[in-house]
Design a protein around this nucleic acid. Structure first.
Length: 306
DNA sequence: ACTCGTACCTGTTAGC
DNA sequence: TGCTAACAGGTACGAG
């Protein structure tokens, strides 16, 4: 479940089940699910077993579960990145293996009893890790869901996401205005703004009537503000609808799909009419991926010789 | 210091 | 119908 709304749906689903729970056992079935973990799979299993999970937090598409302090170590967390196809599922302890199950963590919660937390991932671009928590430079909370001013080392280079109260609008505008890259590439650059992926980039660009190939530095302050506002709006609306699910791949911790796919205006709508002007939406190649644009509402910028 | 292209995977679908 | 190519929601890294 890749972009911010889908990851937040997962975080919110995990929170009540894992906060205050103790890890009773860990089984890593596939080492590719631990590529972000420094150390062997056996190290991951051993270090996590017996620990208490304090809560959950998220910045952009990075999710983590802070662990209760271990006097022998500094603050640390189980970090999760879902990649393109990762899922975190809550199951009964003896539930049969999921398709593409990579890691299973058995937990015991004082109120809810025993549960299995399953990480399943078809394409294996996602992974888990035990990571050190480092202080945020601005002293603000590391992410959504936890007030601690800490962030996993592997997520520290990621910008705050636009739904974070500590997101710096002026900094975003400044970074954008200095870019010789296409605005869509800037939206997908998680060190500039986090949480946006291919779906919501296309949706926000459509809503703000900006062609994805427009250079960041060519956007007026006004256009940059409009874009940021539309990014926020689409992320918030998608979150309220439980995220985007085209198929059974993108689901919450109980395996249920979200409803935002019905609200898409541009993404995946090649050949269908633009909801604003009726012009046929086209698909364009974009760095080995695709962009969906309305050729009338989103005018391709003139090539300027430099 | 930037910017871009590519590698990393498995599964499904579009097209011949 | 069957095969192959294209494509799918992301990130990190190396080359230029």
């Amino acid at each position: 479940m890749p972009e911010l709304p889908e990851v937040e749906v997962v975080r919110a689903g995990l929170a009540p089940a894992v906060a205050g729970a103790r890890v009773r056992g860990v089984e890593a079935h596939d080492p590719r699910a631990l590529t972000r973990h420094v150390g062997a799979p056996a190290d991951f299993e051993a270090r996590l077993t017996g620990r208490e999970i304090a809560g959950t937090a998220r910045r952009g598409k990075f999710l983590w579960m802070p662990l209760s302090d271990d006097p022998a170590r500094g603050p640390e967390a189980v970090m999760v990145h879902l990649g393109m196809s990762g899922q975190m599922l809550l199951r009964a302890p003896g539930a049969p293996a999921e398709r593409h199950e990579r890691v299973r963590v058995w937990i015991e919660h004082p109120d809810h009893g025993e549960l299995a937390v399953v990480f399943a991932d078809q394409r294996t671009f996602g992974s888990l890790a035990i990571d050190e928590l480092v202080p945020t430079p601005d002293g603000n909370p590391g992410g959504f869901g936890d007030a601690a001013p800490l962030v996993p080392r592997q997520a520290a280079h990621i910008a705050r996401d636009p739904l974070d109260p500590a997101f710096d609008d002026a900094l975003f505008r400044r970074r954008l205005s200095g870019k010789a890259s296409a605005v869509k590439r800037v939206l997908l650059d998680q060190t500039v703004v986090s949480g946006v992926g291919n779906i919501y980039a296309d949706e926000a660009l459509w809503a703000s009537r900006i062609h994805p190939e427009t250079l960041g530095r060519d956007l007026s302050t006004r256009a940059a503000n409009r874009l940021l506002a539309e990014v926020r709006a689409v992320l918030a609306k998608a979150l309220a609808e439980g995220g985007t699910s085209f198929d059974a791949q993108y689901v919450n911790v109980n395996g249920q799909a979200g409803y935002f796919a019905h609200s898409l205006n541009a993404y995946g709508r090649r050949g269908k009419p633009c909801p604003r002007c009726g012009t046929t939406i086209v698909r364009e190649r974009f760095t080995n991926r695709s962009s969906h644009v309305c050729p009338r509402c989103q005018r391709r910028p003139m090539r300027v010789e430099t």
